[in-house]
């Protein structure tokens, strides 16, 4: 069984379903990317995995245990980390305090983890006393990812981490995400920049209207003429 398995998810916010029998799995230390056109339910699928959406059908398991009924907070305790797309930092708190709040549920010493985050994102160490709201978009995303890493998650979920950042910063963020995955953390990520994201993905999911349309390795999807024509612009 996969490390994270979200099988046959069906559900939505109101009466109408957004997800239809959608299945996502991620192995340990693997990067899985969800791509697809606007309104395909990419973010919704991720929210469903994180418990922010009521599922009518389907089951979510993490490391073999069923977490379908757990609240997002309890899922964090089980080892999930979530970085929302927007409003993902505490703007009037310093970078250091942001990381500290990320580690709020931990009762042990989190200094080592904070140092690891600073090693991963050296710029944050220089700006540790500065308020997160005063940082550039790319730096803020680093704070957001760093905050989520503070709980030492087994699975890190990123909702469009590169939205609104420059191409150079985007490449750097992707490099960092690969580094995170190398430490054994599984990554599930929604991305608008489908081509770049699939290049670093071990596994890619193309969602259309809340359904799995194509599922393969990132490389295979990039090579697939159908996927290229319909979703990657040739």
């Amino acid at each position: 069984m996969s490390y994270l398995s979200a099988a046959n998810m069906t559900g939505g916010y109101g009466k109408a379903d957004i997800l239809h029998d959608c299945t996502l799995t991620v192995e340990k230390g693997e990067i899985a990317v969800i791509v697809g056109p606007n309104g395909a339910g990419k973010s919704t699928a991720m929210k469903a995995v994180f418990g922010m959406l009521n599922l009518r059908e389907g089951r979510v398991t993490l490391d073999g245990s069923d977490i379908t009924a757990l609240s997002p907070q309890d899922r964090v305790k089980k080892g999930m980390g979530f970085v929302p797309q927007v409003n993902n930092v505490f703007p009037t708190m310093s970078v250091e305090e942001n990381l500290e709040m990320g580690a709020f549920i931990r009762n042990d010493d989190f200094k080592v983890t904070m140092e690891q985050v600073f090693t991963l994102f050296p710029i944050l160490k220089d700006k540790r006393r500065q308020n997160a709201g005063e940082l550039s978009g790319g730096q803020r995303q680093q704070v957001a990812v760093g905050r989520a890493l503070m709980t030492q998650p087994k699975l890190l979920m990123l909702d469009e981490p590169t939205a609104g950042v420059s191409p150079i910063v985007m490449d750097e963020l992707f490099d960092r995400i690969i580094e995170v995955a190398r430490t054994g953390i599984s990554i599930l990520m929604v991305e608008q920049n489908a081509r770049q994201a699939l290049e670093i993905a071990d596994k890619g999911y193309v969602l259309v209207q809340g359904e799995n349309k194509y599922t393969d390795t990132g490389k295979a999807l990039l090579a697939d003429p159908d996927v290229r024509r319909t979703f990657l612009g040739g």
């Binding site: 907070q73 409003n87 505490f90 009037t92 708190m93 709040m101 990320g102």
Partner: peptide, 19 residues
């Protein structure tokens, strides 16, 4: 005190952080 400031700054993220 910090958790109160976090809650004031961004309630959703504070909840996600387990505050």
């Amino acid at each position: 005190g910090k958790s109160m400031r976090a809650f004031s700054d961004n309630e959703d993220l504070a909840l996600l952080s387990g505050i």
